[in-house]
């Protein structure tokens, strides 16, 4: 990679919630009083491609859903550029997991992309031709403008993922949360997504990406969050993405769970 390696930021600067793109403090999320995320503290600077990495069940999706207020927090606070999610909602985009929607739904690729604009269009107003034009441009940028009028069930998995990416692009926000955009896509789609992510970064946007493939982490992301119910490590990828930290994240699952349940027993 030829991109300039950012100098490690002094800790005091990272932890200043005003300058951080995302600042999380003491976040705990539990399902039926079982913790999924435990006491998460994070502070991530602007204009980074952030990979959120960890084993299955580590709470990666839960983390971004909690940031987006899609799940109730047991405790803790999340700030985006120093303000609460609700205040900053219009500058935050979301790319859900592909399997989270019904792809047999009777809508076209273009209609799905246009959904990214619904927040801007507002209640009681309909999708105008200029919105459709924006949506078409977004589809063009991810290379599937020719499929705009296809019903979404007739797209391949990779094409469906590109539709979601185009929707995020049309939404044009400053921060993105993406839930496994690289899951089960073809090589061409993977390239298209990473190109788009790099473009986002060059525009100063910050992307949080749940990622599974350890082989590509250091190639794709300049910031890595290693997560296994707690934050194992968060920082510039070349510092954090080490064998030792990975074995802590993936190998130490049992010990962390034990620690957490002990702590729960003490607090309750």
């Amino acid at each position: 990679m030829t991109a300039a390696v950012p100098a490690p930021l002094p800790k005091s600067k990272i932890l200043n919630p005003q300058s951080a793109a995302l600042h999380i403090q003491d976040l705990t999320v539990a399902y039926h009083s079982k913790p999924v995320l435990w006491d998460v503290d994070l502070s991530i600077p602007e204009a980074k491609l952030v990979g959120i990495v960890g084993p299955n069940g580590a709470g990666k999706s839960t983390l971004i859903k909690a940031c987006l207020n899609l799940l109730p927090k047991t405790s803790g606070a999340v700030q985006v550029f120093g303000k609460s999610y609700e205040e900053q909602r219009s500058m935050i985009g979301y790319v859900p997991q592909r399997e989270s929607v019904d792809w047999d739904f009777p809508v076209s690729a273009l209609e799905v992309v246009a959904m990214g604009l619904y927040g801007k269009i507002g209640w009681f107003r309909s999708v105008k031709s200029r919105h459709k034009k924006l949506a078409k441009e977004a589809l063009d940028r991810v290379g599937i403008a020719d499929l705009a009028d296809r019903q979404i069930s007739q797209l391949s998995g990779g094409q469906q993922q590109r539709v979601f990416l185009a929707r995020a692009l049309a939404q044009d926000t400053r921060v993105y949360f993406m839930d496994e955009p690289f899951a089960a896509v073809d090589a061409a789609t993977e390239r298209a997504i990473i190109e788009l992510l790099k473009e986002f970064k060059s525009l100063g946007k910050t992307c949080f990406v749940v990622h599974h493939d350890l082989a590509t982490v250091s190639q794709y992301f300049d910031w890595t969050v290693l997560l296994n119910m707690r934050i194992v490590k968060s920082g510039p990828t070349e510092e954090v993405f080490t064998r030792e930290n990975l074995s802590k994240t993936y190998g130490g699952k049992l010990t962390i769970l034990e620690e957490a349940s002990n702590a729960l027993r003490i607090t309750h």
Binding site: L68, L70, R89, I92, P96, M115, Y118, I121
Partner: peptide
């Protein structure tokens, strides 16, 4: 007719709808 796009998005992708303030 009035809420067509809200009905569409909250039926297709309720999580996205919520993040858009719908």
């Amino acid at each position: 007719g009035i809420f067509y796009k809200e009905f569409k998005i909250s039926s297709f992708d309720p999580a996205l709808a919520k993040t858009l303030g719908i």
